[in-house]
């Protein structure tokens, strides 16, 4: 049910006849977002944070940008969500096959920053109310959506707790809820599991998989190498460059390593012999 929420006006239609189902399918393909990134350069102060990134984010997949701290993950994501402007290179969003202007896709982008970004003195419920207004979500839609998200994240009992008193895992879940409130087409999560205990991390990933059932584009960054294999596409970032991109398994096979930790160890040995 949750995955169809965005298309709820179409649901009665598709129950009528087969043609409706086809329309629904085509609509889903139509609204699917993909992104191509071409030769992205970004200078942060004196250092060149991104040194020519070229890659592609395919629709309806869970993409992982993995790399150690300082690789440029946050800078890359901030450019993708329009919070930073690249010095060189371009980003193109596509809706289906059609190129689409960033300004028109922007309202359907959800973003969860890496650093703490919620209001310590506002409660879980007040956060949701606030972001409902920011995204201008109609009240009827909001009520169902809010209940659904609270159930999914198992945060129902904590609605009145202020963000400053939430545990690390719950804090991240609240951040995710705020981002997902508007039923986005693209979701950017910058190190969402950073500093979260292993059990909460697994719980968080389960949430992400449910999110993916809605056939939306999810881009996540992480410095935890074990999380790379949970993604359907991986973009390995190191010192502002993409080292490798593709399915996690095929990357490991290609590089002849067992896991991504070995991948980075092998890479650093190759760079400074």
């Amino acid at each position: 049910m949750s995955l169809l929420l965005r298309f709820y006006p179409i649901i009665p239609l598709c129950s009528l006849c087969l043609r409706g189902e086809m329309i629904l399918k085509r609509m889903m393909v139509m609204s699917q977002i993909s992104i191509t990134v071409d030769n992205l350069h970004k200078k942060m102060g004196a250092t060149l944070a991104l040194k020519g990134i070229t890659t592609r984010f395919e629709p309806a997949r869970l993409h992982g940008i993995i790399g150690p701290d300082g690789a440029g993950k946050t800078t890359f994501i901030r450019i993708l969500v329009g919070l930073l402007t690249p010095n060189q290179g371009s980003i193109q969003f596509y809706q289906g096959e059609q190129p689409i202007a960033f300004q028109s896709i922007r309202p359907k982008i959800a973003y969860m920053p890496q650093q703490q970004s919620l209001y310590a003195d506002l409660s879980v419920g007040e956060h949701l109310d606030f972001f409902k207004d920011m995204y201008v979500i109609p009240s009827e839609v909001y009520i169902t959506r809010r209940a659904e998200l609270l159930r999914l994240t198992r945060m129902e009992p904590f609605q009145d707790r202020v963000a400053g008193k939430l545990s690390g895992g719950m804090y991240k879940k609240l951040g995710l809820m705020c981002a997902l409130l508007q039923s986005p087409d693209v979701v950017f999560l910058d190190e969402p599991t950073n500093g979260v205990d292993p059990i909460s991390r697994r719980e968080f990933w389960e949430l992400l998989y449910r999110l993916l059932q809605q056939k939306i584009l999810v881009i996540i960054s992480t410095a935890y190498m074990d999380e790379a294999e949970r993604c359907s596409r991986v973009h390995v970032l190191e010192e502002g460059r993409i080292l490798s991109t593709g399915e996690p398994r095929s990357i490991l096979k290609r590089e002849n390593v067992d896991n991504f930790e070995d991948f980075f160890v092998k890479y650093s040995e190759r760079v400074k012999p």
């Binding site: 919070l83 920053p113 919620l118 972001f131 920011m134």
Partner: peptide, 13 residues
């Protein structure tokens, strides 16, 4: 300082 400006700026506000 709180970091909330980053989140706020990413919304359509």
């Amino acid at each position: 300082e709180n970091g909330s400006m980053e989140l706020l700026l990413s919304t359509p506000v």
